[in-house]
Each structure stands twice: as C-alpha cells, then as structure tokens.
Design a binder for these strands. Structure first.
Lengths: 216, 216
DNA sequence: TGATTGCCGTACCGTATAGTACGATTTTCT
DNA sequence: AGAAAATCGTACTATACGGTACGGCAATCA
C-alpha cells in the first residue's frame, strides 16, 4: 500500500527546494500549455512564456533545455490531464440505452470543450513535425475511451442486450456516430461552443441509430 | 450557352504575354501547394518556393503581394481541385446496397490519400490563424459530399428502399461510419497509406451497419 | 527595330526569435 | 551565519525570414 495522499511517486523527502522546484515546473507547464493551445507551436515564443511567468528566460531554460522539449512536456501533461478528465461513466446497472445515452452525452460535452478542440488542433497540426505527439495523444485519450466502451459493449453482448459482434469495432462505430455530428466542423472553426440541447439531441440520435443497428 | 472549352471566364484574347503570365501563376501555385501541404504554413518559406520555381523572389512578389495572399490562393486552388477529384458515384440504378458500398469505397480511397490527409491537417492546423480557410474548405469538399449523398438517400427513402428519416442527418451518419474507421488516426500520423483490402472491408462494414439502422 | 515588359540574381533591410552570458539579488540548505 | 543554489533583469549573439531595391538580360509587342 502506498502512503495516503502521496502525489509524487518515489516520495522524495520533499526538501523545500525540491518542492519549490516541482511546483515551479508545474507552473511553467501550465503557462506554456495555455500559450501553445491558444497560439500553436510557432505562434508561441519562449520570451512570451517567460514574461507571462513573471520570470526571466534564464529560469525557463533552467527547467527545459529547448522549446522542443518544453512542447513535448506540455503535450505529455495536457494529454494526461485530458484523459483523466475524460473518465466516462458506463453504469452496468443502467438500462443499456440509458448507459449509452449518458456515455455519448459525456463524450460530446468533453470533446467539444474549447480546450479539447485546441488540443486536437495542436496535435493534428504538428503531427508532421512531432510524430511522437500524435501517438502519445491517441494512446492516452481516444484509444482509452474506445477500450472502455468496448468492454462495456462486450458485457452487454454477453448478457444478450446487444447483438453479438466485434465489440471493439462496435465501439468505434458508436463513437463515430457521436463525433460525426460536429467534431470536424469544430476543428475547422465553423462552430463555437455547443449548447446543452444540441449535445442531448446528438447523443440521443447516435444512441438510437446504434441501437437499431445492434438490436438483438 | 458558354463557348465550348473556354476555361477562362471573360475569355481574354490570350495575348502571348497574358497566356504566359497565367501559366506562370499556375506553376507558382502548384509549387507553393506542394510546400505548404508538406511542411505547413510556418515550415514553408517564400525563398524556398522561389528557389523551387527556379526563379527569383522578385517574380514571386510580382504575382502575390504577400505570403498570406499566396497561401489563401493555394488553399482556394487546392480545395477546388480536391472537390473535383471527390466527385462521387451514386448510381440510382444500382441496388441501394451496391450504390452505398461503392460510394463508401470511393470516399475512403479519396480521403485517405496522402494529399487529402495533408490538406485536412493544413486546414485544421491553421484554422485559428486563417478562419476563412476552414470555411472555404468545408463548404467546397465535405459539405458538397454530404449534400450529394443526402439527395441520393432522400430519393431512396421516397422509393421505399430505406426507412424514412432526415436524409441530411442520415448522410452525416453514413459518412461518420466510414470515416470513424481510420481518419482521425491518419490525421495524427498513426497510419500510412491504406491498402485496398482495408478500404473494401471498412466500406462494407459501414454500409452494413447503416443499412441495418435504416432498413425499411 | 525600338520600346516595353517581365524576369533573374543578388544584395540588402528590418524584425523576430531561440538561446547565451553574467552580475546582482533572493531563497534555501547545513 | 555563511555557502550554495535558484532567480531576475538585461544585454547580447546568431540566425532566419518576409519583403524591397536595383541593374542587367531576355521575351514580347507595335
């Protein structure tokens, strides 16, 4: 068992310096993330980040040896945060329709937030220059979501609630039915935020079509 | 009626100079398109384009007054070309299943080509800096495809081949079922080109699920 | 053929930016 | 308290890039 509320692995004795250094690093990552997400890689300058930090450039380079490295660290942190924020509810005690409907709603709300859209844009836009970035993001967020849903669908198929089929493929299809509504339009900047009514309607429609195709 | 094979509106008398100028402009657009698609906006320099042209920078600025304007012109040209290349077959005399299957296959082949992927990336990555670009691309390519499919579906519904429902929404769903298979993975750089077998399998699966959901 | 127009090559300007250097100052460790 | 580490502010280097200027050469036009 780990000690309770030990956020840091290997539990460094947390000398004052170490703690300060750690929190400073987090602050830098937060500020940098804001800039990268809002202005893209080239639109973000190290000087701007340093200024926004209220610190000097020397300090910035003390923590990250180059812009590339800082960017990679930001993507790492942001995708982790995104995955954690994307933990989705799939209550096995709910009616299948209800469970899926709620899942779709959550998925839509979270992937249509301005931050999520900015992250998608950044990852896709820099996929050429930083091939790692695409993989990291994909494996942390969309793939995890799909696995989670596939497990649920698998159980539902075994219990006779859904027609038996490849659950991993079915998961992809339900997610596709959700996202097809507006995700790419949003990525291209054609839609602002989504209102709750639209989300509910889209989630309901996706669930309905999916259930028709996978009825027993 | 327009004159036959008059590619240029207002049919300039095509003095030698005018013709030369026109073709030069096309060449510039082609070269610039290659660079922008492969390296992105910031990764492309005007000097590089000029060198690739075999010409000088002065000439480049003679045709386009700034990098922004050149980029906009490139997007305009490339999206137009993409739309034309995306004209899809929907033969009303085929069996519904066959028509849709062929449509899906074509759609997949065309949207998964390296050039198409590069274009999607460019548009999405620069959606912040060039808000126009997203709209232009969307209205020319994805929206046209969707309208085309919706018209076909509408007819099929009227003829009793498919369950009556909103054809425009149904079109979005079929396209979503196609694209969900691999499009976003490709945008993030996780897949290379697609082999024909995969395309066929994906098209078949999308058609099957769609038809189950929209059976009469 | 003579005037015009466009193109090439190259040098140049101004600016922006990643990254460095360094001395002064503050914070932390022992 | 005194040593060590981190931070700050600022000035600086090197480079890259968008865009301009200009003199000479080739194609085009009338």
């Amino acid at each position: 068992m780990n000690a309770v509320s030990a956020p840091c692995p290997a539990a460094k004795p947390a000398s004052r310096r170490e703690a300060r250094r750690h929190s400073r690093r987090e602050t830098i990552l937060d500020v940098a993330a804001q800039w990268f997400l809002e202005h893209g890689y080239d639109g973000t300058t190290m000087s701007a980040i340093a200024t926004a930090l209220g610190g000097s450039k020397g300090t910035l380079w003390n923590y990250f040896p180059s812009k590339d490295v800082l960017f990679a660290a930001v993507i790492d942190q942001v995708t982790t945060a995104f995955r954690e924020q994307l933990l989705l509810i799939l209550n096995p005690h709910d009616e299948t329709e209800t469970a899926l409907y709620r899942f779709c709603g959550e998925l839509l709300r979270k992937t249509s937030s301005p931050e999520a859209v900015a992250l998608y844009r950044l990852v896709i836009g820099e996929a050429n220059r930083f091939p790692e970035v695409g993989r990291i993001f994909y494996e942390r967020a969309p793939l995890q979501t799909r696995i989670l849903l596939a497990e649920y669908l698998s159980t539902a198929m075994e219990r006779g609630r859904l027609r038996r089929d490849d659950p991993f493929r079915a998961a992809r299809e339900l997610i596709g039915l959700c996202m097809c509504n507006s995700h790419s339009e949003r990525l291209m900047g054609l839609r602002a935020a989504e209102c709750e009514d639209t989300v509910a309607a889209d989630a309901e429609q996706a669930t309905r079509v999916f259930l028709r195709a996978y009825a027993i």
